[in-house]
Deep mutational scan, measured.
Amino acid sequence: MALNTPQITPTKKITVRAIGEELPRGDYQRCPQCDMLFSLPEINSHQSAYCPRCQAKIRDGRDWSLTRLAAMAFTMLLLMPFAWGEPLLHIWLLGIRIDANVMQGIWQMTKQGDAITGSMVFFCVIGAPLILVTSIAYLWFGNRLGMNLRPVLLMLERLKEWVMLDIYLVGIGVASIKVQDYAHIQAGVGLFSFVALVILTTVTLSHLNVEELWERFYPQRPATRRDEKLRVCLGCHFTGYPDQRGRCPRCHIPLRLRRRHSLQKCWAALLASIVLLLPANLLPISIIYLNGGRQEDTILSGIMSLASSNIAVAGIVFIASILVPFTKVIVMFTLLLSIHFKCQQGLRTRILLLRMVTWIGRWSMLDLFVISLTMSLINRDQILAFTMGPAAFYFGAAVILTILAVEWLDSRLLWDAHESGNARFDD
């Protein structure tokens, strides 16, 4: 018995066209964080690309023209004298008006014999932002004059995390709450300039795509075929072959399989920071003279006294001054041990922890910024005066060393310790 099946006739004509040209192939790229070699397709503007294995951002879609970056830099340069030299806060102490600005706080630190601690604050609040705007201006002028731009481009990517104007702005709020127990506070004209400078700096850093600047100024022929001998440069993120001198053909720094002496430098910085954190938390970090009496505060006791007036601000200072430094030390110690013992479990967790400490590390400088600003506000000789204690130097040095330890660690070593050939990683 035959089955009668109805015929289905399409209502619209289906047209099949042959592909007349070869589909576009992607360029081969190595991930600078996990060293995976993959094919990167062509990316349009405002599109980002991520590593298929570790999800690290390979290409950032946010990109401004150099002219727009230069305009932002010149605007920031105009704001800087007002943000640093004009009063941020006014207080009335014992019937006398006192003005506080950024430069005055750094000068008070240096004047009291601790120039190293003052230079830490100076670099993060004044030096690094000033280098940022002058570097962008150098790129703008240098591109037109045919100057060598490689050193500036190499420095810009590392400079971003040292620009800490946003953290200093939080420190202004913390210092205001600490001082309000002794005097009446009012915002100064410099505060508005400083807030504007923070906003412009944040926007500029978020749109400063150094890798795209490398592509514009020093374009290189990408690798179009897969080759395990391809290496990625950690300076400019170019994937290719080393030249005859073993250097990256684009930025001219040595092109090595792994960062040289990464573990040794990381261990040295980490152990030194552990040693410095002990006096930083045991010795007094601030000293207040009130009517001839002397009151010393460690980091913890200062947080407890701050909690009596504002528990939320005390929580912020606790996280930045105690929780973050010790968390960074514990995480980095764990990561280094996992590399030495070739741990194969929990790779995803370790990668996330490394990215976390990379982002939060700079916030530990908050305590030094609060001390710097408070020193310029309260300084009335023996009637009422505020000065920093010996722990300030140890704390600042420990924070900087932990930042350097994270920067010096080559994250690809975590993958080397893991089993080879993993296309995915999980716990």
Rank of each mutant, 00 (worst) to 15 (best):
T5K: 10
I8K: 12
T9R: 08
P10D: 14
P10N: 10
V16I: 10
R17T: 09
A18Q: 12
A18C: 13
E21H: 08
E22P: 09
E22D: 10
R25S: 13
Y28V: 14
Q29S: 10
Q29L: 10
R30G: 14
P32W: 14
C34R: 00
D35T: 05
L40T: 09
L40A: 12
P41V: 13
I43Y: 14
S48A: 15
A49D: 15
A49L: 13
Y50L: 07
P52N: 08
P52T: 10
R53L: 10
C54P: 00
A56Y: 11
A56W: 10
I58H: 11
I58V: 12
I58Y: 11
D60H: 06
G61C: 15
R62A: 09
D63A: 15
T67K: 11
T67A: 11
T67C: 13
L69D: 13
A70T: 14
F74Y: 05
L77R: 01
L77P: 14
W84Y: 12
G85W: 07
P87A: 06
P87H: 11
I91F: 03
L93V: 03
A100F: 04
A100Q: 06
V102K: 01
M103S: 04
M103V: 06
G105K: 01
I106C: 02
W107E: 14
Q108F: 14
F122V: 15
F122P: 00
F123G: 01
V125D: 07
P129Y: 03
V133G: 01
T134H: 09
I136P: 04
I136F: 14
I136Y: 10
A137P: 06
Y138Q: 02
F141R: 01
F141G: 04
N143T: 14
N143P: 10
G146N: 04
N148E: 06
R150C: 04
R150F: 03
L154S: 03
M155S: 06
R158F: 12
E161N: 12
L165Y: 05
Y168M: 13
V170N: 02
G173V: 07
A175M: 01
I177D: 04
K178L: 00
Q180G: 08
Q180N: 14
D181G: 04
A183Q: 01
A187M: 15
V189I: 14
V189H: 13
S193Y: 01
F194W: 05
A196E: 07
T201I: 07
V203P: 14
V203T: 14
S206H: 15
N209V: 04
V210H: 14
R216W: 10
R216I: 05
F217D: 03
Y218M: 03
D227R: 04
E228F: 07
E228S: 05
K229N: 06
L230F: 12
R231W: 04
G235H: 04
F238E: 15
G240M: 14
Y241S: 10
Y241W: 05
P242Y: 10
D243I: 05
Q244D: 07
R245H: 12
G246F: 11
C248Q: 00
C251P: 00
I253P: 01
P254E: 03
L255R: 08
L257W: 15
H261T: 06
S262R: 02
L263C: 07
L263S: 07
Q264K: 01
K265E: 08
C266M: 06
W267A: 09
A268H: 01
A269M: 04
A269K: 01
A269P: 02
I274L: 10
L276Q: 06
L276S: 05
L278E: 11
P279K: 04
P279M: 08
N281A: 06
L283W: 11
I287W: 03
I288L: 05
Y289L: 02
Y289Q: 01
L290M: 09
G292W: 04
G292E: 02
G292S: 08
G292T: 06
T298R: 07
I299K: 00
I303T: 12
M304R: 11
S305Q: 06
S305R: 05
V313P: 11
V313H: 01
A314R: 14
G315T: 14
A320Y: 15
A320L: 15
L323R: 00
V324T: 09
F326S: 08
T327Q: 06
V329R: 02
V331N: 11
M332R: 00
T334N: 11
T334C: 09
T334F: 15
K342S: 10
Q344M: 13
R350M: 09
M356G: 12
W359M: 13
W359S: 09
R362Y: 02
R362V: 14
W363Y: 12
S364F: 00
M365S: 05
L368K: 02
F369Y: 14
S372A: 10
S372H: 04
M375N: 01
L377C: 04
I378K: 00
R380W: 05
R380K: 04
D381P: 06
Q382G: 09
L384D: 00
A385G: 06
T387K: 05
M388P: 03
G389V: 00
G389E: 01
A391Y: 04
A392M: 05
F393W: 07
Y394V: 01
F395W: 06
F395S: 03
A397N: 06
A398K: 04
I400H: 06
I400D: 03
L401K: 08
A405D: 04
E407Q: 10
L409C: 05
R412Y: 00
L413C: 09
L413H: 15
A423D: 15
R424A: 15
R424L: 09
D427A: 14
